[in-house]
Every structure is written in C-alpha cells, then in structure tokens.
C-alpha cells in the first residue's frame, strides 16, 4: 500500500509539466508550427528557479509565501485522488476536502494578487473570485451525482467503482462534458481564458501572477500544471474509472487517459476562440444546467424521485 501511494505521489510530482507540453504540441501541430519541445516546461521551471527575483515594493510576506503554500495544497488535493492506485488517505467525506482545498488555494492566490496594489491584478482577482464561486457549485453537482451513483462519499470509491470499461451512461457522459468544461474554467484555458495572452485587461489567471518573477514564477507554473493534471485526471476518471490492478498497469492506463484528455484540450483550444469576458457567466450557467440534467437523470435512474 505504501509503495503504491509513493508511486501516486511520484506521478503527481513528476508527470504534470509533460501534459502541458502535450497540449502545446497539439496546438502547434494544428497551427502548422513545429512548436516548443514537449518537455519545455520542465526546462522553464528549472531555469526560473535558478534565477534571482524582483519584488514590488507594495507587496508583503503574503505575496512571498503564497506560491509555495498553494503548490502544497494542490499536491495535497491530488493525493486524495486514486491516481494510479487507490489513495490510502481517502476517507468518507473527502470530496468536500477536495473542493475546499482548491478553494483554499484560490483564496491564497487572490490575496497574493491583491497584495501587489495593481489594478490589473485586482481585475484578475475579482474575476477569479466570481468564476471560482460559480464553478464551485457546478463541481458540487458533479460530486453529488457521483455520490448518488456509487453510494459513497469517498473519492476512492467514486473513481474506482469496479467497472474498467467505458461507462455508456447518459448522466456520466453529461458529467464528463460538464467537468471537462469546468476543467477548462478552473485552469484558465481557452475558451475562458488564454494562457498565452498578453493583454492584461482580459486575462484572469495570468494577470494575477504578473508581478511574480524568478523562483516564485517557476513554482507557480509548476503548481498550475499540477492543478491541470489533477483536473484532467479527474475528468478522465469520471468516464474511465481507476483500475484496481497492479500499480504499473494503473500508471500506464492513467498516462493514456490523461494523454487523451490533453489532446482533447489541445484540440478544443485550437478550434475555439476566447469568448468575450461578459459571456463567461453564461457559459458557466450552461455547464451548471448541464450538470443539473445529469443529476436529475441519475435521480430518476436510481428511482429516488
């Protein structure tokens, strides 16, 4: 068990930047470019960590400790998931901890952004707070639906519910689509936010970290990739639950699943444009309604209504 858990932690620490590279590679292939190497992000992170740092005079200690703490929090949330094998620290009711750990990370990131006294970062913070609150309730509907399907409150049970096959259940497919959209929102990907934009007025996540430099920026990029990985793994596990086989098989399957989701993300990002900022709440409501349908279908399916 301990060995399996170490394996989970190892995957969580090592793999995430790779999948960001995959997304970027997919995008560059479709755009007809060669694009950066797949392992570019590892290189960037190491380079940034070796650099010196510049801080704004307006910032306080909050600004300095947030990147590391939110990295740890996101890692902790990832460890609750059955990544390659069931997580030993999972318990009844850990779904709530899972969501609230991300809320904690969001709280800290917003605070750090406001610490810089910049109006651009204030804008990003305000948007993050709004969209975060709205996507959080959608996450809760997804979780409630999964709770009803597996009749358990633990993520382990929820994402390893025995079946190793494609779950062709209408509610599960709806959940997958909705959660895929939440994944894009929470990680500030297209069509909600463009991770490569340079216009501060329209950004969300990227604008909040404008004032970071050097090692802190590296840690933030790394943390963002872990968060993306956790969300992509969760999305994949909704439709392909984690297998209960040996850990090497679990790792291999996980790799393929997350690879598939990254390619999907890359495709979505290549073929959609960033939507107007004022349209984002409408998109969030759309995904909310989608999950609500999934929940109702499940309720009727389980004869609870």
């Amino acid at each position: 068990m301990e060995y399996n858990f170490l394996c989970n932690i190892f995957i969580l620490i090592v793999m995430p930047p790779f999948f960001v590279g995959v997304i970027n590679r997919v995008k560059s292939i479709i755009a007809g470019r060669t694009g950066p190497p797949i392992l570019q992000l590892y290189h960037d992170i190491f380079k940034l960590i070796k650099k010196n740092a510049v801080y704004s005079r307006s910032t306080s200690c909050i600004f300095r400790i947030v990147p590391l703490t939110s990295l740890l929090i996101v890692l902790c949330a990832g460890m609750l998931l059955p990544i390659a094998s069931p997580s030993p620290i999972s318990f009844q009711g850990d779904v709530i901890l899972f969501v609230y750990l991300f809320a904690l990370a969001r709280f800290l990131t917003i605070t750090a952004a406001l610490d810089t006294a910049s109006s651009f970062e204030g804008m990003g913070a305000s948007r993050e707070a709004t969209y975060g609150a709205l996507s959080e309730i959608t996450i809760f509907i997804v979780l409630m639906t999964l709770v009803i399907i597996v009749k358990s409150l633990s993520l382990n049970k929820m994402l390893t519910h025995g079946q190793n096959v494609f779950v062709a259940d209408p509610s599960v497919i709806l959940l997958f689509l909705a959660f895929f959209f939440i994944m894009l929102t929470e990680n500030s990907r297209m069509p909600i936010d463009d991770p490569h934009t340079h216009l501060e007025l329209t950004m969300i996540h990227e604008v909040m970290i404008l004032d970071y430099s050097g090692p802190d920026l590296g840690i933030i990029l790394y943390g963002a990739s872990i968060k993306l990985f956790v969300f992509m793994a969760f999305t994949a596990m909704i439709i392909f639950p984690c297998s209960e086989g040996p850990v090497w098989a679990g790792t291999g399957i996980l790799f393929l699943k997350v690879l598939a989701v990254s390619i999907m993300t890359g495709l979505v990002e290549s073929f959609t444009a960033r939507i107007k900022l004022i349209r984002i709440p409408q998109m969030l409501i759309a995904s909310f309604v989608l999950t609500l349908f999934a929940l109702l279908i499940t309720l009727f399916d389980q004869r609870m209504l």
Binding site: S60, I110, L114, A117, G132, E136, I137
Partner: peptide, 20 residues
Amino acid sequence: LAGGLAVACFTKVFGVVFLG
C-alpha cells in the same frame, strides 16, 4: 455557493483593507 461567495467577500476585505 455561500462558501464560494464568502471566499470572494473575505479576499475582498482582506485584500482591500490590509494589503496593497
């Protein structure tokens, strides 16, 4: 929803009153 909005509210207060 109340939890998510509370995060927004208290980041607002803490950020505006104490930070910057």
